[in-house]
């Protein structure tokens, strides 16, 4: 299979959610923390665990649905002619977790939030790679987080069954080389598992493939 694109990122550590125990969100003051959704809590837990020891780190956040749960709730309120909650509105955007991360850590390093359908994890990783390459001596935290699409949309092929987050610390001194390759896809294929699960499997066991229609992806831990 001819690769359409491939790249390597140096990974210093990775953290997944759910993990062991409760999310560690003590770095966020309670008045800020109270407004976080379960999705944002998972995302910020892995982001903070990855960023340990890095006073400043660039941040790339990827999510297929983001805070869609909140958007749906706002739309329901609108449909029923109810007042909209300012809290829901202000934190319904895709970059909400990235903003909270920056505020809580008092870190003004650049942050990007992207969504790319079922391939959000992979294209987020591409964005993280390109950002990291601009200055490999500085750390970059890459976080992917998703929850299944809420009703009335319902869980989509490739959605996790519950909140899932995976964070990578990409840094020039990382000892793991994570190779990503993209090849032509099969238009008839629908993803049976979340794309991020394939990358996690590669990090843990060596390699994994994922087919989701538009592109075929594979990951190799080197």
């Amino acid at each position: 299979m001819a690769a359409l694109a491939s790249w390597d990122v140096p990974v210093a550590r990775w953290v997944q959610w759910p993990g062991n125990g409760a999310p560690e969100l003590g770095f966020i003051e309670p008045l800020l923390r109270r407004r976080l959704s379960p999705l944002a809590r998972g995302a910020l837990h892995v982001a903070n665990a990855c960023a340990q020891g890095c006073p400043s780190a660039r941040f790339v956040f990827a999510s297929r649905h983001g805070e869609l749960q909140r958007t749906v709730e706002l739309l329901r309120n609108l449909a029923q002619d109810e007042e909209l909650s300012p809290t829901l509105f202000s934190l319904s955007v895709l970059n909400a977790a990235a903003g909270i991360f920056s505020i809580a850590r008092r870190d003004q390093a650049p942050a990007t939030a992207i969504a790319a359908g079922a391939e959000s994890f992979g294209y987020g990783l591409l964005e993280a790679h390109l950002r990291a390459r601009q200055d490999p001596t500085q750390p970059l935290v890459y976080v992917y987080a998703d929850a299944p699409a809420p009703d009335p949309l319902g869980r989509q092929p490739g959605d996790p069954e519950a909140v899932f987050a995976l964070g990578l610390l990409i840094h020039g001194n990382g000892t793991i080389r994570l190779h990503t390759g993209i090849g032509p896809g099969d238009a008839a294929a629908t993803p049976s598992t979340p794309q991020a699960h394939a990358c996690l499997q590669a990090l843990e066991r060596g390699s994994a493939d994922w087919a989701g229609g538009r592109r075929h992806w594979h990951w190799i831990r080197q």
Binding site: L31, E83, S85, P86, T87, S90
Partner: peptide
Amino acid sequence: LGLDSIDALELGIALKK
């Protein structure tokens, strides 16, 4: 208590309701 402007709006809605 340290509440902010979003809280003020949210509280206004709750009082109205």
